[in-house]
Simulated scan of single mutants.
Amino acid sequence: MTMLATAPRTTPAAAPAARFGDLVAAEWIKTRSLRSTPWVIGLTVLFVIGSAAAATLADRAAESGPAAFRSYDSFPPAGYWTLILVAATMGALTVVSEYSSGLIRTTTAAVPARGSVVLAKTAVTAALWTAVGTVASLGSFLVSQAVLDGRHVGVPITEPGVFRALVASAVLAPVCAVVGLGLGVLLRHAAGTVVTSVFVLLMLPTMFSESNRWSADLKHALVSAAWQRLVCPWAPDPDSLGYTATVPGCWLVYLLWPLVTVALAVIVVRRRDV
């Protein structure tokens, strides 16, 4: 009687966990593969810079008098309200588009660490919109100063308040994009996320004034109000009855909004089903 030798059973080796750098690379491929992304970014930057040129050309007060940095020429609200809207919407779409198409199931099946996926999306979104915001901010300033130089009232970048306004306007884009991304993870619905982003980032600050302390505190805690204070080159009037936000407080608002929304997104996405 012969004994049949059987080969020992071997269990397949577990697939190595995806490295964070691989996740970032994958999210970057998703972002740049969308043909609409460069068009939206390009048109937004052109509109922001064009609004600065239009505001400067229409500023008749800048035709005479001493040179002074006019933040409403270099960084007009019309252009930067548009930048806020587009950045928040595009940040949200990086998430809600996957939920609506069902691609998020494939993503989470390949990478069970959902929190890491959110952080990778955040890294790509923040990097992309930091570049966009930098181009828009620097372009707005250079275009407006080119117009003002023709009137002999331009100011250098070393003028007090200019560098702060440049940085605040550049960082505004990634802050709003990351906030939109975090809201997209929390709400998982395109229309609801866009409406919420517009309300929180654009409409809500207009509902509060600086005449009362409680109202001023609420307004100062919002992103667009912090941006307006940071691009303002002059110090608040100490005799004013209004409550003006502090510059360090505005930078803190810039930090906390994306940090809190992404932290909530990571917590929520780990606790619920796709």
Rank of each mutant, 00 (worst) to 15 (best):
A120R: 02
V167Y: 01
P76D: 03
L181N: 01
A146R: 14
T11H: 11
T106Y: 12
L166A: 10
L166E: 08
V231A: 02
L103Y: 15
T206L: 09
S51E: 12
P233T: 13
P77L: 12
D217K: 15
S116E: 04
T261P: 14
V262S: 02
G192D: 02
V223W: 01
R70M: 14
F199N: 02
S101R: 14
D73K: 15
I41V: 14
A168H: 03
E27W: 15
G102T: 10
A109D: 14
T56V: 12
V40F: 01
L183Q: 00
R60Y: 11
L201P: 00
F199I: 09
Q145I: 12
P174N: 07
A55T: 07
V179G: 00
G161S: 06
E63N: 15
T94Y: 07
R272V: 11
T108R: 11
H152A: 13
A123Y: 03
R213P: 15
A146Q: 10
A221N: 05
A170I: 03
S209D: 08
L103Q: 14
A263H: 09
G50I: 06
N212V: 13
A235V: 08
V178Y: 00
V175T: 03
L230K: 00
V86P: 00
L204W: 04
V96C: 06
T89F: 03
V262K: 01
L255K: 03
V268C: 04
S240E: 05
T107F: 12
E63M: 07
T56I: 06
L172M: 09
S224A: 13
T31H: 12
N212G: 09
A13E: 14
T2A: 13
G182M: 03
M90S: 07
V274M: 15
E27H: 10
T196K: 01
C232N: 09
G182F: 02
T56C: 07
S101N: 05
T89D: 03
A88D: 01
G133E: 03
S64D: 15
R164A: 03
A113N: 13
S74H: 11
T31Y: 14
F47M: 14
G182R: 00
R271Y: 13
S71A: 09
T44C: 07
L202K: 02
A87R: 00
S101M: 08
A190L: 06
T37D: 04
A235P: 12
R60N: 11
R70L: 06
D59F: 05
A173V: 07
D149S: 12
A173S: 12
A68I: 12
A92Y: 06
F141T: 05
G21S: 10
S144I: 14
L4E: 06
A113S: 09
A126R: 01
W39I: 07
I41S: 02
V253Y: 04
L186A: 07
T261Y: 11
A14C: 13
P12Y: 09
A92C: 07
G249V: 08
L93T: 08
G182Q: 03
A13F: 09
T82E: 14
V40D: 01
V132M: 04
L83I: 04
T125I: 14
V260P: 00
